Computed example of a mutant assay.
Amino acid sequence: MRDGVAVYLPGSSPDRGPSHPYRSFEPTAAIGPTGQSRDTEGMAFGPDGKTLAAPAGQGLLLWNVATRKPRAILLTGPKGPESTVRDVAFSPDGRLIAGNDTKHHKVYLWKNPE
């Protein structure tokens, strides 16, 4: 496996023709279950690059990047309708994680369970 991160640009597929200089890349790694049709938005890497926070169900799912396995779930509240956390951000020191629930007009703040 090669080192690096694949960045997908809108319309950067081989069928764009020679007039468009974008090159297409296949991902070098995947985190999480495959074959699901759900979209993921608003993911964020922690400042140390070891954690990836991604919206999931009733909150955020924190992934260990090295092992590609979940390490914690941060809930937005009691079980009920799914939250719509779209924007995720870590504090500069990585101790706090913020999530913006666009549907319910709320911002959640969690301590990072390191």
Score class of each variant (00 low, 15 high):
residue 2 R to G: 11
residue 4 G to T: 07
residue 4 G to F: 08
residue 5 V to Y: 09
residue 6 A to F: 03
residue 6 A to M: 10
residue 7 V to F: 12
residue 11 G to A: 08
residue 15 D to S: 14
residue 20 H to F: 13
residue 20 H to C: 12
residue 21 P to C: 05
residue 22 Y to F: 14
residue 22 Y to M: 11
residue 24 S to Y: 14
residue 28 T to I: 11
residue 28 T to Q: 10
residue 34 T to F: 00
residue 35 G to T: 05
residue 36 Q to K: 06
residue 36 Q to S: 13
residue 38 R to K: 05
residue 42 G to Y: 06
residue 43 M to L: 14
residue 44 A to C: 10
residue 45 F to A: 09
residue 47 P to L: 00
residue 51 T to H: 01
residue 54 A to K: 02
residue 55 P to L: 09
residue 55 P to C: 09
residue 57 G to D: 14
residue 58 Q to T: 13
residue 59 G to E: 10
residue 60 L to I: 08
residue 61 L to P: 02
residue 61 L to G: 01
residue 62 L to S: 09
residue 62 L to D: 05
residue 63 W to E: 03
residue 63 W to I: 07
residue 64 N to G: 02
residue 65 V to T: 06
residue 66 A to R: 11
residue 67 T to Y: 00
residue 69 K to R: 11
residue 69 K to V: 01
residue 72 A to F: 08
residue 73 I to W: 07
residue 73 I to H: 13
residue 74 L to G: 09
residue 75 L to H: 12
residue 76 T to G: 14
residue 77 G to V: 03
residue 77 G to H: 06
residue 78 P to S: 09
residue 80 G to P: 10
residue 81 P to K: 07
residue 81 P to H: 03
residue 82 E to D: 14
residue 84 T to H: 12
residue 84 T to Y: 13
residue 85 V to Y: 08
residue 85 V to T: 13
residue 85 V to D: 11
residue 86 R to D: 12
residue 88 V to R: 01
residue 88 V to E: 06
residue 90 F to M: 03
residue 90 F to V: 07
residue 91 S to I: 01
residue 92 P to K: 00
residue 93 D to T: 01
residue 93 D to A: 05
residue 94 G to D: 01
residue 94 G to W: 03
residue 94 G to Q: 01
residue 95 R to M: 08
residue 95 R to C: 01
residue 96 L to F: 11
residue 97 I to Q: 02
residue 98 A to K: 02
residue 98 A to M: 12
residue 98 A to Q: 01
residue 98 A to P: 03
residue 103 K to L: 15
residue 103 K to I: 05
residue 104 H to D: 15
residue 106 K to T: 04
residue 107 V to L: 14
residue 107 V to Q: 05
residue 108 Y to V: 07
residue 109 L to G: 08
residue 109 L to K: 05
residue 110 W to E: 09
residue 112 N to H: 12
residue 114 E to C: 08
residue 114 E to D: 15
